[in-house]
């Protein structure tokens, strides 16, 4: 095992992620398992990846079955672009944080982690505002659709107006499902990131020992990729 996992505990600093064998009140000394956390994180990402892949797939199947004519009346809020940029930037800052800890640059590490955390919070706030704007958009589009007539598809099939309405509704609900699922995913990343950031401020991490930072980076990049896929899918199909 030659790979450096960045989780070699220094004598002064016991590993924080593995305390083995507490039976009752007795704590036995921890055992260090090099790379276990990385592998565990990778597997978690595989599982979450399957989760998002299958939900994207189901979205696409549902979307393809819909008969929405051109010029659908629901538009994605422009704010989604802003959230996307925020998330991309946060991916950058956490990456630099990783670079910093590898170079033992304590101060940049602290602030880059804190910035990432702040950007994550900002992302969630942006998403909430996007949801709210979708709610009003939904009401507006429904009003517009009530006045609309049936949709004639190129194949000659006629979709009654109320059916079109229902499909718009379904599309919006799926939008919410996705963004909420991803929002929970972000939230699930923010909490451990907060812990890691606080520990960084406590001077816990060093060049040889920074498992928390490493897992956060893996998770955060994954978060970023998933969002890009979701966003691209929504942009292309809405």
């Amino acid at each position: 095992m030659t790979e450096d996992y960045g989780d070699t505990p220094t004598p002064a600093m016991p590993p924080d992620d593995k305390v083995l064998g507490i039976t009752g009140n007795k704590k036995t000394p921890a055992i260090h398992i090099p790379g276990a956390g990385n592998l565990g994180m990778a597997l978690l990402i595989v599982a979450l990846g399957m989760l998002f892949a299958s939900s994207l797939l189901s979205y696409l199947i549902v979307r393809l079955r819909m008969h929405l004519g051109p010029g659908a009346h629901v538009h994605l809020p422009a704010g989604l672009w802003i959230s996307t940029v925020i998330l991309l930037v946060s991916s950058g800052t956490i990456h630099w944080a990783m670079v910093a800890v590898r170079r033992d640059q304590e101060k940049p590490l602290k602030w880059l982690l804190a910035t990432t955390f702040a950007l994550g919070v900002l992302f969630l706030i942006m998403q909430t505002s996007n949801w709210l704007s979708m709610v009003t958009a939904m009401h507006r589009s429904f009003a517009a659709l009530h006045a609309q007539a049936d949709v004639l598809l190129p194949g000659g099939q006629i979709i009654p107006a109320d059916r079109v309405l229902v499909q718009h509704h379904d599309l919006l609900v799926l939008f919410y499902v996705f963004t909420v699922l991803h929002g929970l995913h972000v939230l699930g990343g923010l909490i451990p990131l907060a812990v890691v950031t606080l520990r960084a401020f406590g001077g816990r991490y060093s060049r040889n020992y920074h498992p928390g930072v490493r897992y956060s980076v893996m998770y955060w990049h994954f978060l970023d990729i998933v969002w890009l896929l979701i966003f691209a899918t929504l942009e292309l199909t809405f």
Binding site: A47, L48, M50, L51, S54, S55, S58, V62, V166, Q167, H169, D170, V173, L174, V177, L181
Partner: peptide, 20 residues
């Protein structure tokens, strides 16, 4: 995870009344 999403969609469908 796939059955997780399936069951989640089933819940969404029931609660929100959409057609999946």
């Amino acid at each position: 995870p796939v059955v997780g999403v399936t069951l989640l969609l089933l819940i969404v469908e029931r609660v929100m009344g959409i057609g999946i």
